[in-house]
Computed example of a mutant assay.
Amino acid sequence: MPMFRCDFEVKTDLVLPHEANSVEINTPENYSIRLLNGETDQNGDVIRLVATVVGSSVSIMDAQATLREKLAEQLDLLSFATHSRFEIIAPIRLIEWEEWQIKREMRVFYTTDARQPPSPDLEEYFCKTVQLLEKSGIPAFTRRALKYFRYGLIDNQPEDQFMQLWLSLEIIAENTKERSSIPITCQVCGGSMVCSSCGSSPQRVPMAKQAIESIISTIAGNYAKDVARRQFKARNGLMHGRSTESIEAECKAKLPDIVDELGKLTWHAIMSTIPYDGVEELTFGHRDDEFTNKKLIFSAHIEFTHNGETPHPTDKEIPNPVISMKTNFNHQE
């Protein structure tokens, strides 16, 4: 497969000593990662790392995602080794990186949050809704679920968003489930199990899974079985360390769409536990049931030549164009 180089901006708690040029990590799969100090603030302190990742990919269309994944795997280990944070902020540039290649394609990236700048729609009636909900007497477990719902909206990766939203949903399910014992049923027909010796029907207290299924049934109606099956497949896959691709294949849906579905379920589940009397009207906002955080990535495609005496151009020999993108809350320019 062809070789590529992609540079990434990394937010971190640790940077290189001032006298160090770079440090390098090499993987058994022949991917190399070079870390060097990035931009500085007004006091001259380094505030970012730049991670240069070199390795193979199917094509230039897939290279940025492939190399980002390899970088993330090594940053997981680096966080483990240092007890420090390493967060990939955005790609900077992607370059064809075959040795002695003269004509090279390069893509320079500009990344921004899809919801930037914020829309000027925080109206007073939303704050009134907050006050009315507050006065209703929100249970303590609901407040905990609300916290993880907010965390689910903050996280940047759909895998992380899913886990936060699922925790919120599970808190609601665990605290609202039926406490009385129910019969243990047959997994094939659904009938109650009966002991062959004494004829009694063994019982148990419902588990969180049954409680979550009950919540989904109430919210999703006729689509509840398909929704529950998809959500539990995603949950089990993520909890057991499976790849996003395999989870999406099994669920027959993209993970961002699954997160959007879970966000809607969790919102309704939380709302069902708030004892609001309905005397005054509540006003809620929405984003067309889109909960997954998205990035806008603009890339400029550039070609340049390298006729030097080394297999690859040095950093100073690589073009360094400056690109920008102006956005507003109605459209992107």
Rank of each mutant, 00 (worst) to 15 (best):
I302K: 10
L169K: 05
E333D: 13
T244Q: 14
K135D: 13
R179H: 08
C251D: 03
A220L: 01
A81E: 11
Q231E: 12
A269S: 15
I219V: 15
R242T: 05
P321K: 09
P321Y: 06
Y148M: 08
A140M: 07
A269G: 08
A249C: 02
I323L: 10
I184H: 02
G199A: 04
K128N: 12
L238G: 05
Y110C: 11
L282P: 07
W267N: 07
E69C: 04
I88M: 09
E69I: 04
E96Q: 11
V54I: 15
I47D: 06
D277I: 07
R5L: 15
A51I: 06
C186W: 03
S214K: 15
T314P: 01
P120M: 09
A20S: 11
K252R: 14
T176E: 10
C251P: 02
S181F: 08
D76T: 13
S324G: 13
H306W: 15
M193H: 05
K225W: 05
V279E: 15
Y148A: 01
Q116Y: 15
N37A: 00
R235W: 02
E69K: 13
I274M: 03
H83W: 08
Y110M: 07
H18L: 13
K233N: 13
V188Y: 05
S214G: 05
D260G: 06
V50Q: 04
T305Q: 13
D315C: 01
G190V: 06
V50D: 00
F4M: 00
F298N: 08
R107A: 02
E245Q: 14
I274R: 02
Q101D: 02
G199D: 06
H312M: 06
S197D: 12
V130M: 07
E19P: 00
Y31V: 15
K128A: 10
V58H: 12
I138W: 09
E261D: 12
G137C: 09
F291T: 04
D155L: 11
S324R: 11
L94T: 00
D45A: 11
G221I: 08
F284D: 08
K254L: 12
A269D: 06
F8V: 01
K316A: 14
L94V: 00
R68T: 05
D41P: 02
V58K: 14
N156A: 11
T112F: 02
M239P: 01
F4I: 00
Q332D: 07
E213N: 15
H312N: 04
F80Q: 11
L75D: 00
Q74Y: 00
C127I: 12
I154F: 12
Y223Q: 14
P202L: 08
C186K: 06
G152C: 09
E29K: 14
T327I: 03
M325C: 12
T27W: 01
N43H: 12
I302G: 02
F4P: 02
E178P: 00
L35I: 10
Q187A: 11
I219F: 08
I92T: 03
S168H: 07
F80D: 09
F149C: 03
N26F: 04
K233T: 14
H83P: 00
M163E: 10
K254Q: 14
A269V: 09
L67G: 00
M1R: 07
Q64K: 13
V194F: 02
K135R: 14
L255C: 07
